[in-house]
Amino acid sequence: MKSAKKKSFLLLCIVFFFWYAQYIYIPYQTPYLAAINLSTNVIGIVVSAYGLSQLFLRLPVGLLANVKEKHKIFIMLGAFFAGIASVIRIIEPNGTGFLIGNIISGFASAMWISFMVLFLGFYPKSKKGYATSLIIMVNNLGVFLAFLTSTLLYDYIHMVGICLLSCLSGLVAFILAIKLKYPEKIHHDFNYHLLFSALCNRKLLFFSFLALIQQGIQMSTTMSFTNQILSDLGGSASLIGISSMVYMLSSVLFAKLAASKWINLLSITGWVIFSFLLLALYCILVPQVSYIYIILLLQIIPGIGTGILFSFLNFEAMVDVPSYARSAAMGLFQAIYALGMTLFPIIVGVISLQWSMTMAYFSLAGIAIIAAILSIIYWIKFKSDIG
């Protein structure tokens, strides 16, 4: 175990700088776009562009990585695109620049498949759950420190300066990626019939669908329109940053919990159902609260969704996938949840424009409740199948 940690340390460093580059501008993206007079539905399209490119690229990247075993190249490309995306935002600091930048950032995140597969290759099968929680924790830590940086500096260096830091972090990740070493051989011979059968696994598809809901709610609330709600309530740039930091700090802490023995306080079933119900409560309360500091407190709830729920959905989706199909299955998993990241912000933008932001958030609450109900039904059926 100590050997695995030592060998995988460089990759964890790359993960940190990669996600730092990808998310440092996020707390201020929606308020910034609103300040330059973009409507909520246009903002929704700009935000969803990040998921759109992932939707189309993640499965092909997974298949290509599965066949060619070129994870290091994909990781280098991811770091490169993460930095270039913010170069575009600096050159064109308007709606068009952010739209193109988010598409390129989506290209970068599509390479996350190789980060995950390569990292899990350092650990034995018995430790895959621990390894999944560990890499997601470092992912969240990078995002948290990115949010902390933007909160402290945004009033002084503004959006252009924040995007410059994103470029520099992407460059650091790229340089570190050049030095990456592979673990034991993770590529296996396979035929396409076996691969197709593995990708049709019911468990993989079901938990990918639940991840679609979780990631869609996260992208359309915590990562975007919740910040706009805070801004409309008179929240300063610093408060918006603190809000995002509360969310990410709770994500880091709950991801750490998911990698510890304390997670056994509830079963996986219990955590998934409980987390979705909490997300529903979050979506009900946030648009109705008129006090900024209560919203700050509520930001802990989606942290549970990112730190615990997403870790479990990721692990459960992949646990029965044979090793020869792991890259392709990870690509399918990430492509499916990218659909939620693409559609949900657009839906929230349209509903809020036609009716209200409250109605948009209530719709998301209803979807989260449906996810909890589907989880209950799935596990009841699963128990009956094995009984």
Rank of each mutant, 00 (worst) to 15 (best):
C13H: 02
Y156E: 13
C200H: 15
V117D: 02
A258H: 01
L57F: 13
D232S: 10
I91D: 13
D232V: 12
G241N: 00
T151W: 10
N140E: 06
I135M: 07
Q22T: 05
F16H: 01
L233Q: 13
V117S: 04
I294E: 04
L77M: 13
L99H: 04
S39Y: 15
W262H: 06
T358A: 14
I351H: 02
L171Y: 00
I292A: 09
S231F: 15
I346P: 05
C200M: 15
L148K: 08
G387D: 14
S323W: 01
I229K: 15
I369E: 06
L152S: 10
M1W: 10
L257G: 07
S169D: 08
Y130V: 13
L145M: 10
M159Q: 07
M159E: 07
S311E: 03
A110S: 12
I213V: 15
I351A: 13
G101D: 14
L38I: 06
H193S: 03
S114I: 02
S208N: 03
G340Y: 01
N140G: 07
K125E: 13
G44Y: 06
M318N: 06
L11D: 05
F254D: 02
P60D: 03
L63E: 03
G366A: 04
G349R: 00
A328D: 04
A280E: 05
Q54L: 11
Q334C: 11
A146G: 06
K179E: 09
M330W: 08
T30C: 10
T306S: 12
Q215V: 15
T221P: 08
A177W: 06
I75A: 04
G235Y: 01
S53V: 00
L52G: 09
F333C: 03
L11T: 10
K70F: 02
L285C: 09
L313C: 02
M318G: 01
H187V: 03
D232M: 09
K72S: 09
F344L: 14
G101V: 07
P287C: 08
W112M: 15
N37F: 14
I273E: 00
A85S: 15
L199G: 04
L59D: 00
G121Y: 11
L239T: 11
Y23S: 00
I294A: 12
S375N: 05
S251T: 10
M245N: 12
K261I: 12
M357D: 11
F190I: 09
I175C: 08
I292V: 15
I100K: 15
S243P: 09
K127A: 13
F382D: 06
Q22I: 13
G307R: 00
K72P: 06
Y192K: 03
K128D: 11
F107H: 01
L353M: 12
Y337E: 04
L118E: 04
A49K: 06
P27N: 00
Y337P: 08
L281G: 09
A131N: 07
M76E: 03
F312N: 09
D155F: 11
Y130P: 07
L10Q: 07
M223I: 02
G349L: 05
